[in-house]
Protein backbone atom coordinates (compact mmCIF):
# COMPACT_ATOMS: atom_id res chain seq x y z
CA UNK A 1 0.00 0.00 0.00
CA UNK A 2 2.87 2.34 0.82
CA UNK A 3 4.46 1.95 -2.60
CA UNK A 4 1.13 2.11 -4.41
CA UNK A 5 0.34 5.38 -2.65
CA UNK A 6 3.76 6.68 -3.67
CA UNK A 7 3.07 5.60 -7.28
CA UNK A 8 -0.35 7.28 -7.21
CA UNK A 9 1.25 10.47 -5.91
CA UNK A 10 3.86 10.38 -8.67
CA UNK A 11 1.07 9.93 -11.20
CA UNK A 12 -1.14 12.72 -9.82
CA UNK A 13 1.55 15.27 -8.93
CA UNK A 14 2.31 17.81 -11.65
CA UNK A 15 5.11 20.40 -11.71
CA UNK A 16 3.87 23.74 -10.46
CA UNK A 17 0.77 22.43 -8.70
CA UNK A 18 0.53 23.08 -4.99
CA UNK A 19 0.91 19.51 -3.72
CA UNK A 20 3.80 19.51 -1.23
CA UNK A 21 5.12 16.36 0.46
CA UNK A 22 6.36 16.63 4.05
CA UNK A 23 7.87 13.55 5.69
CA UNK A 24 8.82 13.16 9.33
CA UNK A 25 12.17 11.50 8.66
CA UNK A 26 10.40 8.29 7.64
CA UNK A 27 10.26 6.52 4.28
CA UNK A 28 13.75 5.27 3.41
CA UNK A 29 13.76 4.47 -0.27
CA UNK A 30 10.06 5.26 -0.65
CA UNK A 31 10.13 8.84 -1.86
CA UNK A 32 13.50 8.93 -3.62
CA UNK A 33 12.02 9.35 -7.07
CA UNK A 34 9.52 11.95 -5.84
CA UNK A 35 12.19 13.92 -4.01
CA UNK A 36 14.40 13.99 -7.10
CA UNK A 37 11.62 14.79 -9.54
CA UNK A 38 9.92 17.36 -7.31
CA UNK A 39 12.81 18.64 -5.25
CA UNK A 40 11.09 21.98 -4.63
CA UNK A 41 7.92 20.28 -3.37
CA UNK A 42 9.47 17.92 -0.84
CA UNK A 43 10.66 18.46 2.71
CA UNK A 44 12.00 16.07 5.34
CA UNK A 45 11.04 18.27 8.27
CA UNK A 46 12.66 16.06 10.91
CA UNK A 47 11.38 14.22 13.95
CA UNK A 48 9.02 16.90 15.24
CA UNK A 49 5.46 15.78 14.64
CA UNK A 50 3.75 18.62 16.50
CA UNK A 51 5.66 21.16 14.44
CA UNK A 52 5.07 19.12 11.29
CA UNK A 53 1.29 19.38 11.66
CA UNK A 54 1.25 23.09 12.55
CA UNK A 55 3.68 23.78 9.73
CA UNK A 56 1.47 21.94 7.24
CA UNK A 57 -1.52 23.96 8.45
CA UNK A 58 0.43 27.19 7.88
CA UNK A 59 1.50 26.10 4.39
CA UNK A 60 -2.10 25.35 3.49
CA UNK A 61 -3.11 28.81 4.75
CA UNK A 62 -0.83 30.18 2.06
CA UNK A 63 -2.04 28.16 -0.89
CA UNK A 64 -0.24 24.80 -0.63
CA UNK A 65 -1.76 21.34 -0.35
CA UNK A 66 0.53 19.46 2.04
CA UNK A 67 0.65 15.68 2.19
CA UNK A 68 2.20 14.67 5.51
CA UNK A 69 3.76 11.23 5.89
CA UNK A 70 5.07 9.26 8.84
CA UNK A 71 4.30 6.18 10.95
CA UNK A 72 0.69 6.07 12.19
CA UNK A 73 1.12 6.52 15.97
CA UNK A 74 3.61 9.36 15.53
CA UNK A 75 1.38 10.99 12.93
CA UNK A 76 -1.92 10.77 14.77
CA UNK A 77 -1.26 10.45 18.51
CA UNK A 78 1.85 12.48 19.27
CA UNK A 79 0.49 15.70 17.69
CA UNK A 80 -3.19 15.05 18.30
CA UNK A 81 -3.97 18.54 19.59
CA UNK A 82 -2.24 20.14 16.60
CA UNK A 83 -4.40 17.95 14.38
CA UNK A 84 -7.50 18.93 16.31
CA UNK A 85 -6.87 22.67 16.31
CA UNK A 86 -4.50 23.49 13.45
CA UNK A 87 -6.17 21.17 10.92
CA UNK A 88 -9.70 20.19 11.99
CA UNK A 89 -10.83 23.44 13.64
CA UNK A 90 -9.17 25.52 10.91
CA UNK A 91 -10.64 23.29 8.15
CA UNK A 92 -7.27 23.07 6.41
CA UNK A 93 -6.94 20.89 3.35
CA UNK A 94 -3.99 18.77 4.48
CA UNK A 95 -3.68 15.04 3.79
CA UNK A 96 -2.16 12.92 6.55
CA UNK A 97 -0.80 9.60 5.31
CA UNK A 98 0.08 7.10 8.03
CA UNK A 99 2.12 4.01 7.32
CA UNK A 100 1.92 0.90 9.50
CA UNK A 101 -1.73 0.92 10.57
CA UNK A 102 -2.77 -1.74 13.08
CA UNK A 103 -0.15 -4.41 13.70
CA UNK A 104 1.77 -3.88 10.46
CA UNK A 105 5.01 -3.07 12.25
CA UNK A 106 4.88 -6.47 13.95
CA UNK A 107 8.04 -7.10 15.94
CA UNK A 108 8.95 -3.43 16.24
CA UNK A 109 6.65 -3.57 19.22
CA UNK A 110 3.75 -1.70 20.79
CA UNK A 111 5.17 1.81 20.35
CA UNK A 112 4.85 1.26 16.60
CA UNK A 113 1.45 -0.43 16.61
CA UNK A 114 -1.70 1.59 16.22
CA UNK A 115 -5.16 0.44 17.07
CA UNK A 116 -6.45 3.68 18.53
CA UNK A 117 -5.86 5.95 15.52
CA UNK A 118 -9.20 5.56 13.78
CA UNK A 119 -11.07 6.40 16.97
CA UNK A 120 -9.01 9.55 17.32
CA UNK A 121 -9.22 10.66 13.73
CA UNK A 122 -12.91 9.96 13.22
CA UNK A 123 -14.04 11.92 16.29
CA UNK A 124 -12.68 15.14 14.79
CA UNK A 125 -15.21 17.27 12.88
CA UNK A 126 -14.29 18.18 9.27
CA UNK A 127 -12.00 15.17 8.83
CA UNK A 128 -12.40 12.55 6.09
CA UNK A 129 -10.81 9.19 6.94
CA UNK A 130 -9.77 6.37 4.64
CA UNK A 131 -8.37 2.90 5.25
CA UNK A 132 -7.44 1.00 2.05
CA UNK A 133 -7.64 -2.79 2.06
CA UNK A 134 -5.28 -3.45 -0.84
CA UNK A 135 -2.69 -1.60 -2.92
CA UNK A 136 -5.11 -0.40 -5.61
CA UNK A 137 -7.22 1.36 -2.99
CA UNK A 138 -4.33 3.65 -2.02
CA UNK A 139 -4.97 5.62 -5.18
CA UNK A 140 -8.72 5.62 -4.60
CA UNK A 141 -8.11 6.96 -1.08
CA UNK A 142 -5.66 9.60 -2.26
CA UNK A 143 -8.06 10.74 -4.97
CA UNK A 144 -10.93 10.91 -2.48
CA UNK A 145 -8.75 12.87 -0.05
CA UNK A 146 -7.78 15.32 -2.80
CA UNK A 147 -11.47 15.84 -3.52
CA UNK A 148 -12.36 16.46 0.14
CA UNK A 149 -12.48 20.11 1.04
CA UNK A 150 -10.87 19.74 4.45
CA UNK A 151 -8.31 17.61 6.28
CA UNK A 152 -8.01 13.89 5.59
CA UNK A 153 -6.32 10.89 7.12
CA UNK A 154 -5.28 7.83 5.10
CA UNK A 155 -4.35 4.78 7.17
CA UNK A 156 -2.08 2.51 5.20
CA UNK A 157 -0.81 -0.94 6.04
CA UNK A 158 2.83 -1.28 5.18
CA UNK A 159 3.91 -3.01 2.03
CA UNK A 160 3.38 -6.30 0.23
CA UNK A 161 -0.36 -6.56 0.88
CA UNK A 162 -1.99 -8.82 -1.76
CA UNK A 163 -4.15 -7.64 -4.64
CA UNK A 164 -7.66 -8.83 -3.76
CA UNK A 165 -9.32 -8.27 -7.13
CA UNK A 166 -9.32 -11.99 -8.04
CA UNK A 167 -11.68 -12.65 -5.10
CA UNK A 168 -14.06 -9.81 -5.94
CA UNK A 169 -17.61 -10.53 -7.15
CA UNK A 170 -18.89 -6.99 -7.45
CA UNK A 171 -18.16 -3.56 -6.14
CA UNK A 172 -18.87 0.12 -6.39
CA UNK A 173 -17.03 3.22 -5.27
CA UNK A 174 -18.04 2.59 -1.66
CA UNK A 175 -17.77 -1.15 -1.13
CA UNK A 176 -16.35 -4.35 -2.56
CA UNK A 177 -18.04 -7.73 -2.20
CA UNK A 178 -15.77 -10.79 -2.14
CA UNK A 179 -16.26 -14.58 -2.09
CA UNK A 180 -20.07 -14.76 -1.88
CA UNK A 181 -23.02 -12.47 -2.66
CA UNK A 182 -23.80 -10.79 0.65
CA UNK A 183 -27.51 -10.64 -0.17
CA UNK A 184 -27.63 -14.44 -0.17
CA UNK A 185 -24.99 -15.21 2.44
CA UNK A 186 -25.47 -16.86 5.82
CA UNK A 187 -22.96 -14.47 7.34
CA UNK A 188 -21.47 -11.26 5.99
CA UNK A 189 -18.08 -10.07 7.19
CA UNK A 190 -17.79 -6.29 7.08
CA UNK A 191 -14.23 -5.08 7.21
CA UNK A 192 -11.70 -2.45 6.19
CA UNK A 193 -7.93 -2.21 5.89
CA UNK A 194 -5.28 -4.88 5.46
CA UNK A 195 -7.18 -7.42 7.57
CA UNK A 196 -9.64 -7.81 4.70
CA UNK A 197 -7.34 -10.52 3.34
CA UNK A 198 -7.67 -12.57 6.58
CA UNK A 199 -11.44 -12.29 6.22
CA UNK A 200 -11.27 -13.60 2.65
CA UNK A 201 -9.16 -16.59 3.73
CA UNK A 202 -11.70 -17.31 6.48
CA UNK A 203 -14.66 -16.97 4.11
CA UNK A 204 -13.11 -19.33 1.55
CA UNK A 205 -12.55 -21.96 4.22
CA UNK A 206 -16.11 -21.71 5.48
CA UNK A 207 -17.55 -21.77 1.97
CA UNK A 208 -15.74 -25.10 1.46
CA UNK A 209 -17.78 -26.36 4.43
CA UNK A 210 -20.97 -25.02 2.83
CA UNK A 211 -21.25 -22.05 5.16
CA UNK A 212 -21.94 -19.20 2.77
CA UNK A 213 -19.83 -16.29 3.96
CA UNK A 214 -19.58 -12.99 2.12
CA UNK A 215 -16.88 -10.41 2.69
CA UNK A 216 -17.67 -6.75 2.17
CA UNK A 217 -14.83 -4.27 2.51
CA UNK A 218 -14.98 -0.50 2.53
CA UNK A 219 -12.19 2.06 2.60
CA UNK A 220 -14.22 5.21 3.22
CA UNK A 221 -14.31 5.25 6.99
CA UNK A 222 -15.61 8.78 7.48
CA UNK A 223 -18.01 9.84 6.23
CA UNK A 224 -19.22 6.26 6.33
CA UNK A 225 -21.16 5.44 3.15
CA UNK A 226 -24.81 4.58 3.78
CA UNK A 227 -24.33 1.45 1.66
CA UNK A 228 -22.38 -0.10 4.53
CA UNK A 229 -25.32 0.12 6.91
CA UNK A 230 -27.58 -1.28 4.19
CA UNK A 231 -25.28 -4.31 3.89
CA UNK A 232 -25.82 -4.97 7.59
CA UNK A 233 -29.59 -4.70 7.16
CA UNK A 234 -29.64 -7.00 4.16
CA UNK A 235 -27.54 -9.70 5.86
CA UNK A 236 -28.84 -12.49 8.06
CA UNK A 237 -25.83 -12.14 10.31
CA UNK A 238 -22.96 -9.66 10.25
CA UNK A 239 -19.47 -9.90 11.70
CA UNK A 240 -17.43 -6.71 11.73
CA UNK A 241 -13.69 -7.44 11.74
CA UNK A 242 -11.15 -4.71 12.43
CA UNK A 243 -7.43 -4.43 13.08
CA UNK A 244 -8.20 -1.85 15.73
CA UNK A 245 -9.46 -1.66 19.28
CA UNK A 246 -13.16 -2.42 19.53
CA UNK A 247 -13.43 -0.04 22.46
CA UNK A 248 -14.97 2.90 20.53
CA UNK A 249 -14.20 1.88 16.98
CA UNK A 250 -15.59 1.89 13.48
CA UNK A 251 -17.29 -1.38 14.41
CA UNK A 252 -18.97 0.06 17.47
CA UNK A 253 -19.96 3.13 15.46
CA UNK A 254 -21.66 0.95 12.85
CA UNK A 255 -23.28 -1.11 15.63
CA UNK A 256 -24.62 2.05 17.24
CA UNK A 257 -26.15 3.20 13.93
CA UNK A 258 -27.71 -0.23 13.39
CA UNK A 259 -29.10 -0.42 16.91
CA UNK A 260 -30.69 3.00 16.54
CA UNK A 261 -32.52 1.84 13.44
CA UNK A 262 -33.47 -1.52 14.90
CA UNK A 263 -31.27 -4.58 14.57
CA UNK A 264 -32.70 -7.33 12.33
CA UNK A 265 -30.01 -10.00 12.17
CA UNK A 266 -27.15 -11.06 14.38
CA UNK A 267 -24.25 -8.64 14.80
CA UNK A 268 -20.82 -9.24 16.29
CA UNK A 269 -17.56 -7.27 16.35
CA UNK A 270 -14.13 -8.88 16.30
CA UNK A 271 -11.06 -6.72 16.91
CA UNK A 272 -8.37 -5.93 19.41
CA UNK A 273 -9.73 -6.33 22.87
CA UNK A 274 -8.55 -3.34 24.95
CA UNK A 275 -5.01 -4.54 25.47
CA UNK A 276 -1.54 -3.66 24.28
CA UNK A 277 0.54 -6.24 22.45
CA UNK A 278 2.68 -8.18 24.92
CA UNK A 279 3.92 -10.86 22.52
CA UNK A 280 6.75 -10.28 20.06
CA UNK A 281 6.49 -11.36 16.45
CA UNK A 282 5.44 -10.71 12.89
CA UNK A 283 2.07 -9.20 12.00
CA UNK A 284 0.73 -12.68 11.18
CA UNK A 285 1.88 -13.92 14.58
CA UNK A 286 0.34 -10.94 16.35
CA UNK A 287 -2.99 -11.30 14.51
CA UNK A 288 -3.13 -14.77 16.07
CA UNK A 289 -2.08 -13.44 19.47
CA UNK A 290 -4.92 -10.92 19.36
CA UNK A 291 -7.30 -13.59 17.97
CA UNK A 292 -8.11 -11.69 14.81
CA UNK A 293 -6.39 -14.00 12.30
CA UNK A 294 -8.32 -16.06 9.74
CA UNK A 295 -8.65 -19.08 12.06
CA UNK A 296 -10.11 -16.90 14.81
CA UNK A 297 -12.54 -15.40 12.30
CA UNK A 298 -13.63 -18.91 11.22
CA UNK A 299 -14.11 -19.92 14.85
CA UNK A 300 -16.14 -16.80 15.62
CA UNK A 301 -18.44 -17.38 12.64
CA UNK A 302 -18.98 -21.02 13.55
CA UNK A 303 -20.04 -19.88 17.01
CA UNK A 304 -22.37 -17.28 15.51
CA UNK A 305 -24.27 -19.78 13.37
CA UNK A 306 -24.69 -22.54 15.94
Amino acid sequence: MRNSLRDALLEIKKPGDKIYLIVGDIGFGVFEEYSKKFKEDYLNIGICESNMIGFSSGMSMNGFLPIVYTIVPFLTMRPFEQIRIDLALHKRKVILVGVGGGLAYGNLGPTHHSFEDLTLMTILPNFAVFSPSQPSESKEALTAALNHNGPSYIRLGKNGEPDLSKFMLKGNSNLKNYCYDYKKADVTILTYGAITYECIIAAKELIKDKVNVAVVSFFKIKPLPKDILEVCFESKASLIVEEHTTYHSIGTHIASKIMQRGLRGKLKILGINDKFTEEVGSRDFLLKAHKIDSNSIVKTIREMIT
Binding site: L43, G54, M61, N62
Partner: peptide, 25 residues
Protein backbone atom coordinates in the same frame (compact mmCIF):
# COMPACT_ATOMS: atom_id res chain seq x y z
CA UNK B 1 -7.81 37.32 13.05
CA UNK B 2 -5.46 34.94 11.25
CA UNK B 3 -5.78 31.87 13.49
CA UNK B 4 -7.82 30.43 16.33
CA UNK B 5 -5.59 30.22 19.36
CA UNK B 6 -5.92 29.53 23.04
CA UNK B 7 -3.96 26.35 23.47
CA UNK B 8 -0.40 27.59 23.72
CA UNK B 9 2.49 26.68 21.45
CA UNK B 10 0.60 26.36 18.15
CA UNK B 11 1.36 29.72 16.50
CA UNK B 12 5.10 29.32 15.86
CA UNK B 13 4.71 26.19 13.70
CA UNK B 14 1.78 27.67 11.79
CA UNK B 15 3.80 30.85 11.28
CA UNK B 16 6.83 28.87 10.11
CA UNK B 17 4.62 27.03 7.59
CA UNK B 18 3.22 30.30 6.25
CA UNK B 19 6.73 31.79 6.11
CA UNK B 20 8.06 28.77 4.20
CA UNK B 21 5.14 28.95 1.77
CA UNK B 22 5.86 32.66 1.24
CA UNK B 23 9.47 31.86 0.36
CA UNK B 24 8.35 29.18 -2.12
CA UNK B 25 5.85 31.61 -3.65
Amino acid sequence: IEISSGSLGHGPSIGAGIAHACVLN
